[in-house]
Design a protein around this nucleic acid. Structure first.
Lengths: 232, 232
DNA sequence: CTCGCGACTGACACGGCCGTCAGCGGGAAT
DNA sequence: ATTCCCGCTGACGGCCGTGTCAGTCGCGAG
């Protein structure tokens, strides 16, 4: 396809010439005060508002004005806690990414107390649990996280690539031990991850009850073990 | 989570008061003319430029100015062929959606000349072929199609839902015949579709050669038949 | 030749959203 | 009581992308 060498960073922040503004003429009507609140709590308040809006309307359709209105603070307050919209989004994704990362535990083959199957089962259970507990973030991660800006995209892609790499290594080990089917490990990894992602996304979007987590875990485990086709 | 009753259509197009502008003072320097081109061809030219940019930078980072620059036409020309950015995007997605739709053929169980397995195989082969032939559109469909605006999202969701429904019906039939594994058909559909989607996306993004289509078809078919785990 | 048509052009007005900053006021410190 | 501090406020300047439309030009018909 055609090529466009134009780069356009789009995230440049020019210092903006400082200009004398409103030389204290009008006494400013009144500033509707608000009970002072601990710093961390206020940050959380803004963060939650943003999370809800991102999940409901998507990143691009959400404006700073929307966020501050939802959080019930003034526009300026937002900028006391976050650099810009991208920053709060990034913060949200980072936190959720960490949550997800701790849910994934490397599989060991020489532990007599936990079979490989049980370990896989546990991993799936924890991932599904995390996503169902954080529906808004799951939806955001799967739908809006890409296309924010090239830099952020790269960060996200490398996070995902790390997960794929971990899985690929694990699959290779498994193939040596004969407990993973033959085939290009990377392809297997994509398919397994894709199946899980789609299931998670739909579970979260359709508002599946948290109780169904165990059923989903069973189903995907069965799918990974035996597929779904029984032709011939 | 919290609720925001505010709706904000965001796609309103106010008539914009017609104002006398530039009363023919300056004779306008010169309008760099361009060889006239058949209508359909010009439209195609703009469409291709947009497709490339959407695939490379994403919908939101692509501006009309980018598109016309890439297409080598003036800003006004764009609006002679498309209502706005959303329209050209929608057009692109619609066309690709149709291509994809014809690649999917309903499975029949009473055809003695084509086994069910072969039909599934054919479907997968055609889908992968279509996506590898239209890499840009595949990338766009999987990454940018969601979050453009609520209306468009709904259209897309219903297209996807139709595919899921078709697959669910097919799976139910298969279960009755004993050629599809037990389990909630909708869940199976999500997992199968998710595996295919992810594989397709990665194949397109990583720039896999068109020749590998057959390998991918084999691998996903094998995955659907037997999964990937051989524990115990 | 010239007239009219219609494709094409690009400067411009407009509006939305962003980031800033002068000022406000409640409470703690003095 | 007075002062100071600091979290918070919200109007404002400005930028950037959009959609328009008056005007230009090439071409075929009269």
């Amino acid at each position: 396809m055609s090529s466009a060498p134009k780069s356009r960073p789009r995230r440049a922040k020019p210092p903006r010439a400082p200009k004398a503004r409103r030389p204290a003429l009008e006494p400013r009507p009144k500033a509707e005060r608000r009970a002072p609140v601990p710093k961390a709590e206020r940050r959380q308040q803004i963060s939650s508002a943003a999370r809800g809006l991102f999940a409901r309307r998507g990143y691009h359709l959400t404006t700073i004005d929307d966020i501050v209105a939802q959080a019930g603070v003034a526009r300026g307050t937002f900028y006391l806690y976050f650099e810009d919209k991208r920053a709060i989004f990034s913060d949200l994704i980072d936190r959720f990414g960490s949550q997800l990362a701790v849910a994934i535990v490397r599989i060991v083959t020489d532990d007599p107390t936990r079979s490989v199957g049980a370990q896989i089962h546990e991993n799936i259970r924890r991932i599904i649990g995390t996503c169902l507990a954080e529906r808004a973030m799951t939806k955001i991660l799967f739908t809006d996280a890409v296309g924010i800006d090239p830099l952020f995209d790269r960060k996200l892609a490398s996070f995902y690539e790390n997960m794929v790499l971990l899985l690929v290594e694990t699959l290779k080990d498994g193939q040596k031990l004969g407990i993973v089917a033959d085939g290009e490990p990377r392809v297997l990894a994509y398919m397994a991850l894709g199946a899980l992602k789609e299931l998670l996304y739909q579970a979260v979007t359709l508002g599946l009850a948290e109780e169904s987590a165990e059923v989903l875990t069973q189903q995907i485990y069965a799918f990974l073990c035996d597929g779904c086709l029984r032709v011939r």
